[in-house]
Design a protein around this nucleic acid. Sequence first.
DNA 1: TCGCAAAAGGTCGGTGTTAG
DNA 2: CTAACACCGACCTTTTGCGA
Length: 307
Amino acid sequence: GYTSEDPAPTQYDSVQRFAEWGFKISPLMVRAKSVEELVAHYHLIEAQRSSLGYDIDGVVYKIDQLELQRRWGFVTGEPRWAIAHKFPAEQAMTTVLRIDIQVGRTGTLAPVARLAPVTVGGVVVENVTLHNEDYIKGLDSNGQPIRDGYDVRIGDTVVIQRAGDVIPQIVSVVIDKRPPDAVPYEFPHKCPICGSPATREINEKTGKEDSRRRCTGELICPAQAVEGLRHFVSRGAMDIEGLGAENIDLFFNAGLIKTAADIFTLRDHRPAVTKALAERREEQARQREAASGKTRKNVRSVEERNY
DNA sequence: TCGCAAAAGGTCGGTGTTAG
DNA sequence: CTAACACCGACCTTTTGCGA
């Protein structure tokens, strides 16, 4: 919000003023004088977490003096005068069913692990990004081992968490549960969409191999074409309302849009556009019909298995 | 015109990369 | 070391389109 002047010279006293004005404030906020006091209070709140009646994922430490907050300012959109101390993320165990490769706008082959559905932190997680070829092997971008150096294989039992309580992430591989017939994942050297060679470029200056393998098909690759179109209409680019990723897919598959220029002559193909939209609605109606009745029960039974 | 459902838009916070 | 940015999955809000 906006204030014409500070309610008080400090964070703590400002919030106390809010209380005087009738706002509800958290009774758990304290003013600490040392790191030891901060950490002690973190553990105090952690102990009360489950009985609070609302969800929290940690605590935030802030510089009390508002003048100092202004002086310290921000770096990359993040304040230098406040930092979150999060509680350990909830973890869950599940298995890797498959590894799919997605092809992005720039041709990047992005591996995604499909998981047996598992509830973590209140949501059902079925996918987790594997980032790149080396990440699957158990190496970070500097060649250092991650997950104790274990690779991820189809059939593996893995521990996942939602990093920052948001993004699914594989924490570790339960090596004792690896099926005896599990084999190392072979990262494709051909684009799964267009079949063109997928290569890792060498950085000219550093001589280092790019961590990403990319499809060399460029314009002939449908995946790159569609992703390029999605990017073109996205908020960060042309920001075309009503023409999102779903509709780009529909119109591309119907042959109505092949390049960005085709978007601007869509009006000349009104009957075909209407037909494509109608067909999608019918297809969705069929799927709803087929799924009705059993979907919810299935989802619930999957959740129960997790416990 | 209204109510409903689906689609689209927007956001979050991690990882990972490149450029300078 | 900083800055900028792509990417990812899930959730919530807003908009759109349909049938009554």
